[in-house]
Design a protein around this nucleic acid. Structure first.
Lengths: 412, 412
DNA sequence: TGTATTTGTTGTATGGATGAACTTATGCCT
DNA sequence: AGGCATAAGTTCATCCATACAACAAATACA
């Protein structure tokens, strides 16, 4: 997110913030509750320091002491620590082609509130749609506030090119929106940090396997590709989205497959979307534009699969394979997570895809490349947005701490 | 380089190291000598702290006080500080298809020693070649030591896939080398930190415009592409090479342009190298394989340019444009620096290339994309290797400091 | 020659981590 | 049941690096 850390002197305070974040990350990221002594052992800090820091985190509502569990051995039993449920929360919003959504997660990773409003937002009016989404958001925020929770931030996911610095949407082709700043149009309550990001980037964040927010088995570096009408992508390295200069990295949908191929919405020819995007794929498979993924799967899976559908899906797999191979050669990742409609189709094109990868990835002999369905498939951009807010809190707990202090000191 | 900073507690010492690096970076990176007060103003540290830190840096031989310059105004004149010349040096080594080389830079960016041995190393024997390079390196190191300089590290550039963690070369197709660890074969003196890296990655580092090591005008985020027989690339973000999972990112030479195109060395078909690589380009232009770039330019630039040559170069420009467009869409950069043979050819294909970029880069309307010749063209991998060593010193001056301390304390 | 001005240095204060000693709480052994 | 071993959490003196303020040094300018 931060474009580049600019020269800043380190003071004592910097030191404490670092260690505070370290302890917060350790507690929130642990698979099971840890005692203060456990945290000390894992971080390398002394028990004394950990105690002091944990006290602050508890004060800020980030961490909570659990009831003493059944003691496991000799010695004084430790007090189990865990991320505080239902105190600090992150809010994810999304405008999708098929729905508007708001989702709230707490530090344990649990969904504490959610509101989805289906609809068709192709070529819609931004003012109206964002107004409606703002209404949803306010409702959710009111509920959450009524339950005593404090929103630490809000992220809006949009299916288009979002300028990371200014927060402006440059263009969202399928929505038919261009050049607007969503901030004012939502009518959100002031005082809660708000940011806009690309849908695929946030969906990718949702897949990260870190902290309690996900089991250890999930990778932390991968390419996320989401297939729908458009094809979005995001590069994640060490749990962090690699956004590039403006935050627009990962636009895999317009990789060239054939410079003389069919014309694409973007104006060029032979883009990946024209082979592996929904509209193109449906057309090649001989399905009506409104057909569902399930219908396509039915065509493929029957005892007598439809040849046109099979050919179209195989072609999509090959095309996707070429685009993934290019990406892997350029960015050097070994895991690809497929989202959107791809998980359902994966069984039918995985062979074609793997063959292309094996042939075209230069490093293939030395790096096993895994292509898997994305673990989080349920509107992942909402989860990712909320999670990004919480990740920022854990990464810089001082912000929340001072909020607590201020709030206390405001009332003398 | 470091794969991922793992949880580490921050102590007082950490704090000092950070500020030490901050001061070092400020002094070494300044365009003109700064006084202690200037450094304090730029970093945000107090003059007292800066004084203490600068003293340490002077003690370590990183920084030097210059003779008081002509005073420029009222008040006590400041003592100008500058990176110390000819004390700490970085060493870059390279095995190229056409030469072996060793180059030594000091902190001012000046070349203090260099040795180049031309030759043809296509399909050569690694043991022998690395032995010869080791000889070169030892000669240079002896000279440098005789002049009282201290090498802070050595980087070896190889034209192939180098595993960043283990330092092993996986494969270097044109050299005909595979799966070897160069460390032992060079026979370098022990005690000097040594690392191996990909040639394009180091050449890319040489282009970075930071510090005194380069004027401000140069970008710090860009894609570097070097055209020769093979086409190497490297992604640089904020002055840092983006290596990906294993350090293999940037392999632009094998981006697909036509899945049914001519077969490539890599086993696949229609890679960029088959259109914009030297061998393919020469063949299409009707030149013998040994022809020089100057010969090709002569064919292009005459009053009556050779049609085959023009067509070949235009085709290469178009092909390169497609590969660059893919890369820019995937990684979101707005500057491309071309090295190797491309700077000479750029005038003849820049129009074709620009046209493709304008048509295919999704973000083109909002991000002006500059394609320029790389500023450092003289065996940049040597410079980049040496510079990377020095950059590491500036970034972690504590390492050098403790060396000084230890050396002092070893003799009681 | 004196004053204003800026640089660099010299204490003193402060914030934060360390390390050792101490208290508390449990299991285990007799 | 009582005592001992063991481990968790807390308290306190110490250390370390920076901030802050006062001071000395060196120049320009009136």
């Amino acid at each position: 997110m931060a474009p580049s850390a600019r020269p800043a002197p380190a003071r004592q305070q910097t030191l404490r913030q670092h260690n505070l974040a370290l302890v917060a990350r350790t507690v929130v990221g642990a698979e099971s509750p840890l005692s203060r002594a456990d945290v000390a052992a894992r971080t390398g800090l002394t028990r004394a320091t950990v105690s002091a820091l944990v006290d602050r985190l508890i004060g800020a509502g980030l961490v909570r002491e659990l009831a003493p569990a059944t003691p496991q051995g000799a010695g004084r039993p430790g007090v189990p620590l865990a991320p505080a449920p239902r105190t600090l929360v992150g809010v994810g919003l999304e405008v999708n082609l098929g729905y508007l959504g708001a989702r709230v997660l707490d530090l344990t990773g649990a969904t504490v509130a959610e509101l989805i409003e289906p609809g068709d937002f192709h070529h819609s009016r931004a003012t109206e749609v964002l107004g409606r989404l703002g209404g949803l958001a306010r409702t959710v925020l009111d509920d959450v506030a009524a339950a005593g929770m404090r929103p630490a931030g809000i992220r809006l996911a949009l299916p288009g090119l979002v300028d990371a610095r200014s927060g402006r949407l440059r263009i969202a082709p399928n929505l038919g929106w261009s050049s607007l700043d969503p901030t004012g149009l939502l009518g959100l309550p002031a005082g809660i940090p708000f940011a806009v990001a690309n849908e695929a980037n946030l969906a990718a964040v949702a897949q990260v396997g870190r902290a309690r927010l996900a089991p250890r088995a999930r990778p932390t570096s991968y390419l996320y590709v989401s297939g729908d009408v458009g094809i979005g992508g995001a590069i994640v390295v060490d749990g962090e989205v690699f956004g590039g200069r403006h935050g627009w990295a990962g636009e895999i949908g317009h990789v060239v497959l054939d410079a003389a191929g069919p014309r694409c919405r973007c104006g060029a020819r032979g883009c990946l979307e024209q082979y592996a995007g929904k509209d193109a794929l449906w057309q090649r498979a001989g399905l009506p534009a409104q057909a569902t993924v399930a219908q396509l799967v039915a065509e493929l899976a029957g005892a007598a699969p439809d040849p046109a559908a099979v050919a179209a899906v195989q072609g999509a797999g090959t095309a996707l394979g070429h685009a993934l191979a290019d990406t892997i050669n350029l960015v050097d990742l070994d895991t690809v997570l497929l989202g959107g409609m791809y998980p359902d189709l994966l069984p039918f094109f995985t062979d074609a895809l793997s063959a292309v990868l094996a042939a075209r990835v230069v490093a293939a002999p030395w790096a096993e490349i895994a292509v898997r369905p994305a673990p989080v498939g349920d509107r992942p951009a909402l989860t990712g947005g909320a999670r990004e807010v919480l990740r920022d809190v854990v990464r810089r707990p001082a912000g929340v701490l001072s909020m607590g202090d201020d709030a206390a000191s405001v009332v003398p």
